[in-house]
Write a protein that binds this DNA or RNA. Structure first.
Lengths: 208, 208
DNA sequence: TAGATTGTTAATCGATTAACAATC
DNA sequence: TAGATTGTTAATCGATTAACAATC
């Protein structure tokens, strides 16, 4: 187990985690790979293969204990070891992300908000003051954030990414169209591209 | 060409479209699959295979005309045939999506905003009044929107999705955790799950 | 024409599914 | 013990990469 896990498997883990949470909320305590597969629209084989990348969490003749399996997946995902994050760009998008996303339950803790627009500096969002981007160096050297969330336009992203990488940032949650992964190795990047998602939907509406 | 296109190919199309736009902005007029592959971090083979799902857009010995290729991809994605959309749920997220996402350039046109919170009804966002969810039936029968954008909590999503499908909605841009695709066939669903994306990043930070 | 690069077929690689022995 | 269901190996399927003849 736990050699090199494929991307396909990794991307299914959060969904397993969510579904197990729902089953728990329903008061269920155990489930077989077959029943879980029917509820999630997968094959039982795939579920067993996926889970066995990380260990044998089930029991023959019984299935899986929902509570245990969910917390194992939480541990695998690292939800129990919070990573500190800063968010750059407090426009509509950055604001919505800050207020709407439940970081704590997903393994993150926001410790700083930044914007280069002086009129926003000092405003408080989710109990954190918006800081000037000019104080980014100082803040990072003092607080050592591990992750940066980029809610800035593409043209600003290249410079900021460069600066952040040199300040020790290890991962990006990237809402900009700047392709960080193409320009830096050794950092983890997770892109959220609204436009790509919409265009995909457009294609399917036209064709399926 | 154009038999059944795999999901992997479809999901790469928006990225091709974006990169070609950038090359155009750089003043370039032609590009080979090899050079494009280097810029995008793909193989030249894959690019040629992908494009040939839809037709022969290149020319031997020359490569691809950037302008023509981009507009072909735009046509394939359906960006030139705008689909009408309504957005349900004008909290932080719905507001940010409405204001931040450039729907027009992605093949969509927002024609209605809805929320069930009476205090929001009547407010104007992006030149559209927020309407009461109680007027959804009437609005849909009169305006026949094709797509719904769900920015509502999971517990509200099941009922609204049911209502919208029966009102003729053909596609969902789904920000909720309700699994529409699992419950309805014949509708297209594109999910945006912030939480899943964050957890994936958490995993990679812990392991890579 | 010679050089370049596509379109397309064949080979490889990886992911999913099926099957079944192990075992609770 | 008998029945159920896992963990795991083998078979299949699909996607990516390599190769090359066609052709601009």
């Amino acid at each position: 187990m736990s050699g090199l896990i494929s991307n396909s498997v990794i991307k299914r883990l959060p969904r397993y985690y969510r579904f197990l949470g729902e089953l728990k909320a329903l008061g269920m305590t155990r489930i077989s790979s077959r029943e879980l597969s029917e509820r999630m629209g997968l094959t039982a084989s795939q579920i067993r293969q996926d889970l066995n990348c990380f260990g044998g969490f089930g029991q023959q003749g019984y299935g899986y204990n929902i509570d245990i399996l969910q917390s194992e997946i939480a541990r695998i995902l690292g939800l129990d070891t919070p990573k500190s994050a800063i968010l750059i760009g407090m426009g509509n998008l950055g604001r919505a992300v800050t207020m709407h996303v439940n970081f704590e339950t997903k393994g993150f803790r926001i410790i700083g908000l930044f914007d280069n627009k002086e009129s926003l500096v000092g405003q408080v969002v989710k109990n954190l003051p918006i800081r000037s981007t000019s104080t980014l160096d100082e803040f990072c050297r003092e607080n050592r954030p591990q992750v940066a969330i980029l809610c800035i336009p593409k043209n600003a992203a290249a410079d900021i990414a460069q600066q952040l990488v040199s300040l020790g940032i290890k991962g990006f949650w990237n809402f900009s169209h700047y392709d960080i992964a193409l320009n830096y190795n050794n950092v983890q990047v997770e892109n959220v591209h609204f436009g790509d998602s919409l265009m995909t939907l457009s294609y399917r509406l036209n064709n399926d």
